[in-house]
């Protein structure tokens, strides 16, 4: 059940923020559902992609941000490519993930949010992503220590995983990029 009266208080502000972050005009969407029809991840989602846009149009911050769908979107951009109104839904989903994370609403996408955090931490520290380290960290921190151990073994014997991260010379420069971005965004 949607509580539309709640939208009145914060709705316009929410719509404005999503439009600013995504660069998309939400009123362009007339709910034809073509995005949902072609979405390869729709089978796994709790809300269909066109419903996510509708919730944003209605200004329902909590419903639009606190769901599985925004975290299951793989940004394949099939929707963006096919939209008859040129709404870049993949860009919109990016904006919603960014806002959900900033507001601490990652509960329904905890595994993906954790993966993103671990991946970026690897890049911040080494300048490059260390795949073995990222996989191991994700296993340990999601309580599945042996997930993909057969896969890792297979990749290791084929020389397709590195034990040690490759640290670039400009690693400190990359860490500064992270710090600068954070400083600018927190100061907004």
């Amino acid at each position: 059940m949607l509580n539309l009266s709640r939208a009145a208080a914060d709705g316009a502000h929410f719509v404005e923020e999503v439009e600013k972050r995504s660069g998309q005009r939400l009123t362009h969407c007339y709910q034809c559902g073509k995005c949902t029809a072609g979405c390869p991840l729709a089978f796994s989602m709790d809300l269909m992609p066109h419903q996510v846009i509708r919730l944003v149009q209605l200004g329902l911050r909590e419903e639009a941000l606190d769901n599985k769908a925004v975290w299951l979107c793989s940004t394949c951009a099939t929707c963006s490519t096919r939209c008859p109104k040129n709404v870049d839904l993949a860009a919109l989903m990016d904006a919603l993930r960014i806002m959900a994370r900033r507001e601490g609403r990652t509960r329904k996408g905890a595994s993906t949010a954790l993966f993103n955090r671990i991946f970026l931490d690897s890049v911040r520290r080494h300048g490059r992503a260390h795949e073995l380290g990222i996989g191991l960290q994700h296993n340990l921190r999601s309580g599945k220590p042996f997930k993909d151990s057969d896969l890792a073994r297979g990749l290791l014997v084929r020389g397709r995983l590195k034990f040690r991260p490759s640290r670039i010379k400009g690693a400190a420069e990359v860490a500064r990029i992270f710090a600068e971005v954070k400083r600018m965004e927190d100061g907004q």
Binding site: R21, S74, T75, D94, A95, R97, I98, R101, T112, F115, N116, R117, F119, L120, V123, A129, I177, F178, V181, M184, E185
Partner: peptide
């Protein structure tokens, strides 16, 4: 930066 970066910060 792959998907984790654009899902976390456009600027990053």
């Amino acid at each position: 930066g792959a998907s984790p970066a654009h899902s976390t910060s456009h600027l990053l």
